[in-house]
């Protein structure tokens, strides 16, 4: 009995830090130091060649007052996140709910719907998207089959291009669907039986039992997906190169352009911290709203 206590209760700092060392080293070298460096550069004018000169907060001021492309990138990214996250989660929930019944071949459907999620981030899929929705692509050829000859493709039109990229995000709803599916399976059947006995209809049961029981999962996914959405890059870069007329220029892509096309390193670092601030605000606000809509079972 005595021994039992010693193995977990006693501090073992040496072993703890030995095990943590590889990660810790990486954290310091690849995160902490770059973070500090980046904060410093964000207050400087730096182009890799000359030594950085301190300019105070003027990089931050520049972004909000002088830089229209920054505003455009911000607008595009907000639009993207606000469209793709709710749509993807809603669709994932809808399909998960349909698959949460007894049918044959469910495993097959689940697998099929999940495939886009695992390949979605690749350059190959972005290439496919470009060809499917671009000039002389699948959509245009289908439209002309029905007699609608189009001059510009959906990707060539600044009004629709971003929606095609949103569509690609929604197409990858599979992983959220799997998470919802497993959360659905954990809802105790007794709840449904009780509601059924009380004469509640299907829709009512869905809104009053399924949704509240899923709110912790929805909440968690919402946060992860928002962070994910803000870092959209490959789609913007490979499919449209941010165009037409910057209508699909994502925030991260603009950061990249500033840093590596214009060697505007200081400014790019400032942009990075503005992004971190935006994500932090989203996360904090969401956490604050939690008590109004997220229901944790076992907590009264």
């Amino acid at each position: 009995m005595k021994r039992k206590k010693t193995i977990f209760k006693k501090n073992d700092n040496l072993l703890g830090y030995m095990l943590l060392a590889p990660w810790l080293l990486g954290f310091l070298v690849m995160w902490f130091i770059p973070m500090m460096v980046s904060v410093y550069y964000s207050f400087t004018d730096f182009n890799m060649l000359k030594t950085p000169s301190f300019v105070g907060i003027s990089n931050y001021v520049r972004a909000f007052t002088k830089d229209d492309t920054f505003k455009q990138a911000l607008k595009v990214t907000f639009k993207y996140v606000l469209l793709v996250v709710p749509l993807r989660l809603a669709f994932a929930l809808f399909v998960a709910n349909l698959l949460n019944k007894k049918h044959i071949a469910l495993g097959l459907y689940r697998t099929l719907y999940y495939v886009p999620s695992i390949i979605g981030g690749s350059v190959a899929v972005s290439i496919v998207w470009k060809q499917v929705f671009g000039n002389s692509g699948v959509v245009m050829s289908l439209l002309s089959l029905f007699g609608y000859e189009q001059k510009t493709s959906l990707l060539g039109n600044p009004k629709t291009a971003l929606f095609i990229i949103v569509l690609m995000g929604v197409w990858q709803f599979g992983s959220s669907m799997l998470i919802f599916l497993s959360a659905l399976k954990q809802i105790p059947t007794s709840l449904y039986e009780a509601a059924h006995v009380d004469g509640a209809g299907k829709l009512k049961i869905f809104w009053k039992i399924t949704i509240p029981m899923l709110t912790p999962t929805i909440f968690f996914n919402l946060i992860l997906q928002i962070i994910n959405g803000f870092r959209m890059f490959t789609e913007s870069y490979v499919i449209t190169e941010g165009g037409p007329v910057n209508s699909t220029l994502s925030y991260v892509y603009y950061m990249y352009q500033r840093a590596f096309n214009y060697f505007d390193m200081g400014y790019s670092c400032a942009l990075a911290w503005i992004l971190v601030a935006i994500i932090a605000v989203f996360t904090v606000v969401l956490f604050q709203t939690q008590k109004f809509w997220v229901y944790y079972a076992g907590e009264e």
Binding site: M30, S38, Y41, F230, R231, A259, A272, L275, V276
Partner: peptide, 11 residues
């Protein structure tokens, strides 16, 4: 929580 892209320039 912090996107890796944010760290890329200083890295």
């Amino acid at each position: 929580m912090i996107p890796a892209q944010v760290m890329v320039v200083p890295q």
